[in-house]
């Protein structure tokens, strides 16, 4: 790996972004088509949608679903993952289910959930969480298997309580795996939540995108996508990276 200065890094990132916009602009000019509006058109559209409060309302609803299903999936996935990583028997019992869960198409789970549990918000969140739980389980199980027995022996030798052992000896060893699970899980959820909304909800970004599709409103689709992408990056920069830095401070 060659070394890059922090200032250089920022410059490179800006150049990358500008190049993207320039390419887009160039493509829009050369095509001169309704199907690819220029960046300026999209920006205006974003501005209008923000002012009218339509976009913020749908975005808020979608983000709410993302957050709840993310937390639910992380919690359940972690518990199952730790249990499977620590118990060989449980691992053998559940491994087949896990492979099934990993490979079943998201669309199938979503449709079945809606059919079985009705077209409501709880089902929507459940459907997203179910799609994500297996990937969390796999990652956390890996972490639980790699837990250092020597350090657990220290906890036992000094008669640390169950909660102290869990929070200060056991879980810190899982944090790196946790971060991997959160990252990959979040990117999965962003994608699935839109499908869930498209199929069975009458609000949220997914629902709006479907409407724009029906009306062939490409500017609308790109405007929503742009805002959505911005939110994803914001979460990465403002939440995940600082959290990761905090959890892995001791490595430096």
């Amino acid at each position: 790996m060659n070394f890059v200065l922090p200032r250089e890094e920022a410059t490179l990132r800006v150049i990358s972004l500008l190049a993207f916009v320039a390419l887009w602009q160039f493509a829009a000019w050369s095509m001169q088509s309704q199907t690819l509006p220029t960046p300026a058109v999209i920006c205006t559209r974003v501005y209008e949608e923000l002012l009218s409060w339509v976009l913020p309302r749908h975005l808020g609803i979608t983000l709410g679903r993302v957050v709840i299903s993310f937390l639910l999936a992380m919690l359940i996935g972690t518990i199952i993952g730790v249990a499977m990583g620590r118990s060989r028997k449980l691992d053998l019992l559940l491994d087949g289910w896990l492979i099934l869960g990993l490979n079943i198409p998201a669309l199938v789970t979503i449709i079945l959930c809606y059919v079985w549990f009705g077209l409501n918000d709880a089902t929507a969140i459940l459907a997203v969480a179910i799609n994500k739980i297996p990937t969390v389980v796999v990652t956390v199980r890996e972490g639980a298997r790699a837990v250092d027995r020597d350090l657990l022996q220290v906890a036992k030798a000094y008669r640390l309580s169950f909660w102290t052992t869990l929070s200060r000896v056991f879980l810190p060893q899982l944090y790196p795996y946790f971060m991997v699970g959160a990252r990959s899980g979040l990117s999965l959820i962003w994608k699935i939540v839109l499908v869930v909304e498209l199929l069975g909800r009458s609000d949220g970004i997914g629902f709006q995108l479907n409407m724009f599709f029906q009306m062939f409103d490409i500017a609308g689709i790109l405007a929503y996508t742009l805002v959505f992408a911005a939110i994803v990056m914001l979460v990465e920069v403002a939440a995940l990276r600082p959290l990761e830095r905090r959890l892995t401070r001791w490595r430096n």
């Binding site: 020597d150 022996q153 220290v154 200060r168 944090y175 001791w250």
Partner: peptide
């Protein structure tokens, strides 16, 4: 123990 066995994150 033979190794210090300190918690590296503390």
């Amino acid at each position: 123990f033979q190794e210090p066995r300190l918690m590296p994150w503390l």
